[in-house]
Computed example of a mutant assay.
Amino acid sequence: MNTTAHSTEAAPGRIVLLTTSHRVAPGLLSWPAWQALHAADRVLCADGAHPQLPYLREAGVTVDEAAPTAEELVAACAGGRTVVVVATGEGEPALTDGLARLAGSGRVSMPQLELLPASYDLPGARLLDLVQVMDRIRAECPWSSRQTHRGLAKYAIEEAYELVESIEDGDREELREELGDVLLQVVFHARIAEEDAEEPFSIDDVAGGIVTKLIHRHPHVFGDESATTPEEVKEHWLRTKAAEKRRASVTDGIPLGQPALALAAKLASRVRTAGLDVPLPQREDIGYTLLALATEAESRGTDPEAALRAAARTYRDAIRRTEGV
């Protein structure tokens, strides 16, 4: 009896908490996870509808649908046995809290405890959550369900400006939030586009389109061409873009609704890149003076819109100091 008791004490067993990601297809588990499942003395799962169970059973793993207490789980490990617990979506907080209390009590010899992630989120996996949340909001929210591309357009502009402001302020937390707000606009518009009766498209179509474009416009990365400087990269980009768009004029594709300084700089950039000799119109008007300044700034590699905005912020700060704010 003493020998048996000593053996049990020396080999209290092992508890493996197996976690999976709902963003990865069921059944796609890591090799260590499959090894642990096949080698376990018992495999338990509290959720009989857990999406992994059909795949585990198909692979020959016997799974008992049970939700043991911490004490029951420790007892099941007696004699050096290994018990794998397939965690539910919540991660079994009640069980892990109970095991922590039991370990802290000093009343029992605790088994080895191991957290084993069986599947991992790939980079970008949380984007799937955003798509699902947007689907539900579009279906159930009285405001969101009535929105249109045209009605949302102003918010895209507002969010873009707020993003720029967070960049200029150097606020990392604000930058993260504003990037999320801009991303929401993309997902929202893509969700609305799915409902178009004549030309529907989805967020996957949007992502697929930009992936194709990026690969095509980076032949130095995905193809046989080479580029060692930013200038050569830009040359590749403009050449492939011109072949794609087949534009009649270098001004095609420039949005006239953008801020005026940015518009002037973009026109000047297209002219310079194309090697055209287009003299600036000369008139005694402040608009043409600003056009000349924007063109000069672009030729020096300066963004006139950003430069004027920085100067305006400095002016704002001076006004506030004068006001004693």
Rank of each mutant, 00 (worst) to 15 (best):
D169R: 12
L128K: 06
A87I: 04
A160T: 12
G275Y: 09
I137H: 05
E162P: 00
R270C: 14
Q52D: 10
D181W: 03
A11G: 03
V187D: 03
G48N: 08
W237G: 00
K234R: 11
G48H: 08
R101N: 14
D224W: 12
V233Q: 05
A306Y: 04
T69W: 09
R172C: 04
P142H: 05
Q258I: 13
L183G: 08
I157K: 07
A118R: 00
T82G: 06
L175A: 07
D303W: 02
I15Y: 01
A310I: 05
F222N: 08
D47K: 04
D64I: 08
A264C: 09
D205N: 12
R150S: 08
H149C: 06
R136P: 00
I254A: 02
R246N: 14
R101C: 15
P219C: 06
Q132G: 03
H6E: 15
R176P: 01
T302P: 00
E92A: 12
R191S: 15
L183R: 10
A160E: 03
E58L: 13
G48I: 05
I319S: 04
A5F: 09
K245P: 02
A306G: 04
K241P: 01
V182Q: 09
A265F: 00
L37K: 01
A5N: 12
G104P: 03
D252E: 14
A197Q: 06
V131N: 01
H22E: 15
T82C: 10
G106T: 06
F201I: 08
M1W: 06
L256S: 05
T4Y: 04
M134C: 07
T19R: 08
A262S: 15
A103Y: 02
M134K: 02
A118E: 00
A197R: 14
M134A: 12
V43S: 02
R300N: 09
V325Y: 10
A311T: 10
A156M: 06
H218N: 15
Q35L: 12
L130F: 05
V74L: 05
A103R: 13
L17C: 12
A260M: 05
R246W: 00
A139R: 11
K213I: 13
L28E: 13
L267C: 11
L183V: 05
A153P: 01
A311W: 13
L238E: 11
T212A: 13
A227P: 02
G253A: 07
D252I: 01
G48F: 06
D64A: 15
R321Q: 13
E195C: 12
E199L: 07
P259C: 02
V278G: 00
E165Q: 14
V85K: 01
Y155F: 07
R239Y: 03
V164L: 09
K213R: 14
L122K: 08
